[in-house]
Amino acid sequence: MKNSGTIIKITLAVFLFLCLLKMPYGFYEFVRFLSLIGFGLLAYKAKEENKNSEMIIFTSLALLFQPFFKIALGRELWNIVDVIVGIGLILSSGRLFFTKRNN
């Protein structure tokens, strides 16, 4: 499944952007679990493709968002992190949207 990484990235970006809205606390916990799993899968995929820089980035993001030992940044700073990571995910999956396809 070649585009599975892109699907994971777009899904995570959407959920991170939804975190900017006022949501119940359970939603944020769900996003943390989803992010841990999603970034973990992206790190694994990057490792398989020998993309060590991407592997380190995705592993770091999995650790940042993991729900077990929470990093208290405050709502405003988490919003900034969510936006930066969401934009980064969209840009890194941009090859799917901006490349020409040969028919």
Results as ranks from 00 to 15, higher is better:
1 M>I: 04
2 K>R: 11
2 K>Y: 11
3 N>G: 12
6 T>S: 14
8 I>P: 08
9 K>D: 11
10 I>G: 03
12 L>G: 10
14 V>Y: 05
14 V>H: 01
15 F>Q: 08
16 L>G: 01
17 F>D: 00
18 L>R: 00
19 C>Y: 00
20 L>Q: 01
20 L>S: 00
21 L>H: 00
21 L>D: 00
22 K>T: 08
22 K>H: 03
24 P>G: 00
25 Y>S: 14
26 G>I: 03
26 G>Q: 04
27 F>W: 04
27 F>A: 06
31 V>F: 06
31 V>A: 01
32 R>N: 13
32 R>L: 06
35 S>I: 08
35 S>E: 05
36 L>H: 08
37 I>V: 15
37 I>M: 09
39 F>Q: 10
39 F>R: 09
39 F>N: 10
39 F>K: 06
42 L>W: 10
43 A>E: 06
45 K>G: 14
47 K>T: 15
49 E>Y: 11
50 N>M: 12
50 N>F: 13
50 N>Y: 14
50 N>I: 13
51 K>N: 15
51 K>T: 02
52 N>I: 14
54 E>S: 14
56 I>R: 10
58 F>W: 05
61 L>V: 03
62 A>R: 02
62 A>F: 06
63 L>G: 13
65 F>A: 09
65 F>K: 04
67 P>Q: 11
67 P>Y: 10
69 F>V: 12
69 F>R: 08
70 K>H: 14
70 K>S: 12
71 I>N: 12
71 I>T: 10
72 A>G: 04
75 R>I: 05
77 L>Q: 02
78 W>C: 01
79 N>D: 12
83 V>M: 12
84 I>N: 07
85 V>S: 05
85 V>K: 10
86 G>N: 07
87 I>A: 14
87 I>M: 04
88 G>A: 07
90 I>D: 02
90 I>M: 08
94 G>M: 07
96 L>F: 15
96 L>V: 15
97 F>R: 12
98 F>T: 15
98 F>N: 13
101 R>T: 15
103 N>R: 09
103 N>P: 11
103 N>L: 11
